[in-house]
């Protein structure tokens, strides 16, 4: 894995090993110029982000909600409270599609909500769409309807 600063830096916080594997495979198969880092829980993620040695900030964070040690919601709150990460795009990546979770993460400052697909090709499509999305444009017109990404 090279560390080209022009690469798209993508983070994934996900406690399920299989899901991390699917995600990794999908990114690899997409053959995009990007670099993926995965974390097994929220604390791992926050340790990395808050480490002063982390100088190259990520572009996009895929954040699972149900995680041990520190949940996705807690991470979201901490990240959005830190001005350093104001440009970080946060994509919620969860099995749940409950109104409550969608509402709370929307208010919490997440940029998009993705329900984990049950088909590998769909997963690839989702990642491609999110990575290629014009975030400036998306964020300016963000509302609750466009927040939930329908596949």
């Amino acid at each position: 894995m090279n560390s080209d600063s022009s690469q798209m830096r993508i983070l994934l916080a996900e406690d399920d090993e299989d899901d991390r594997l699917f995600f990794n495979d999908a990114i690899n198969e997409l053959k995009m110029n990007n670099r993926l880092m995965t974390f097994k829980d929220g604390r791992d993620l926050m340790d990395y982000l808050e480490n002063p040695e982390t100088t190259l900030l990520p572009h996009i964070l895929f954040l699972d909600l149900n995680m041990p040690c520190k949940t996705g919601a807690e991470c979201l709150k901490e990240i959005r409270a830190n001005p350093k990460f104001k440009d970080l795009t946060i994509a919620i990546y969860s099995t749940s599609s409950s109104e409550k979770d969608i509402e709370e993460t929307f208010i919490g400052g997440a940029n998009i909500y993705i329900k984990k697909p049950n088909d590998f090709s769909k997963l690839k499509k989702v990642i491609k769409d999110v990575v290629n999305m014009n975030w400036q444009y998306h964020t300016s017109g963000l509302n609750k309807e466009t927040f939930f990404l329908s596949i």
Binding site: D16, F22, T95, N118, D119, F120
Partner: peptide, 12 residues
């Protein structure tokens, strides 16, 4: 969650 993973593996 496990069902989704089963489906995911099926698709792969």
């Amino acid at each position: 969650e496990p069902l989704r993973k089963i489906q995911m593996f099926i698709s792969r």
